[in-house]
């Protein structure tokens, strides 16, 4: 499937903010389930944008703004062709040993409740176990955008029984690691053909399964990641794989506007330039 992604983040500062430094994990890599045809990051202010590869092998950038600014717009756009590999992730560089993904982080610590959930899904067949875990999280935690925030940890979200894709992914990760399964967080985009133009920032989890390697599970939708998923960055948790982490000096209060759009389009013959969708529809 051919997906067009358009991602715009606008920072506005009360007063000009100086010394802005941001780590951007906004660029997908091609792998067996996706091939990136075109991708660009545009920053609205003068500065230095440098690419690097982080410890997980993600394509990252660091941005240093030159002077003080009162508004900063990051515009990411691109085109990806996806293939359904039933969630199996292959063709990615894997610089870290899998055991690293057994580490617990403050955001993915399994409390007694998550451990109980994990134990209830134990299965001698690791693939069956992973599916049971994903479905258990999918059933137990309802999607609700209003109860959690970006720094909510897995245990809290699970106690609330509600959360967004980030929370569901982190609960799944915490439970999987408890069962001794290396697990990691994936930030990316989701653009199903039946819902064009919907908000497309998404997150799910990858579990390392014997014989299969990394397999992507999307507990929010209760499915393995497929054609509608564009995989951008992985990490131990949502903070580690965060699309943007930044710092600044001064600037006072900040307002943030994010709009991410994904659109599935009919596969044009190769060579036709992608039509970039309009991104004016900010909320």
């Amino acid at each position: 499937m051919r997906l067009l992604i358009d991602h715009r983040t606008v920072y506005r500062y009360e007063r000009p903010a100086a010394g802005i430094v941001q780590i951007l994990k906004l660029t997908p890599r091609s792998c067996d389930s996706q091939s990136v045809l075109a991708w660009r990051i545009d920053v609205s202010v003068e500065g230095v944008l440098k690419p690097f590869t982080d410890a997980h092998g993600n394509l990252a950038h660091v941005f240093y703004a030159d002077g003080a600014v009162s508004e900063l717009v990051l515009h990411v756009s691109g085109e990806v062709i996806t293939t359904d590999t039933t969630g199996i992730v292959s063709g990615t560089p894997e610089p870290l040993p899998k055991a690293i993904y057994l580490r617990t982080t403050p955001l993915t610590e399994a409390d007694a409740a998550i451990r109980t959930l994990a134990e209830s899904c134990r299965d001698p067949d690791p693939v069956a176990e992973a599916h049971r875990l994903m479905l258990a999280v999918h059933e137990r935690v309802a999607f609700d955008p209003d109860v959690t925030h970006p720094s909510t940890d897995a245990a809290t979200a699970f106690r609330l029984g509600r959360g967004v894709c980030q929370d569901l992914a982190q609960i799944l990760i915490a439970a999987a690691r408890h069962l001794g399964r290396p697990a990691r967080y994936v930030s990316g985009h989701y653009a199903p053909p039946d819902h064009p133009e919907q908000e497309a920032a998404h997150a799910w989890a990858e579990l390392a399964l014997p014989g299969l390697g990394w397999v992507a599970f999307d507990p929010t939708h209760g499915v393995c990641a497929g054609e509608a998923h564009v995989r951008v960055a992985v990490g131990l948790d949502s903070a580690d794989a965060a699309p943007i982490r930044g710092a600044r000096r001064g600037g006072g209060a900040e307002t943030l506007q994010v709009s991410v759009h994904g659109r599935a389009v009919a596969s044009d013959p190769p060579g036709v330039p992608p039509s970039v969708p309009s991104a004016e529809a900010t909320q």
């Binding site: 982080d54 690293i100 057994l102 580490r103």
Partner: peptide
């Protein structure tokens, strides 16, 4: 590898 003191970065 799971030691909190290991800095995976």
């Amino acid at each position: 590898l799971r030691n909190p003191q290991l800095c995976w970065h």
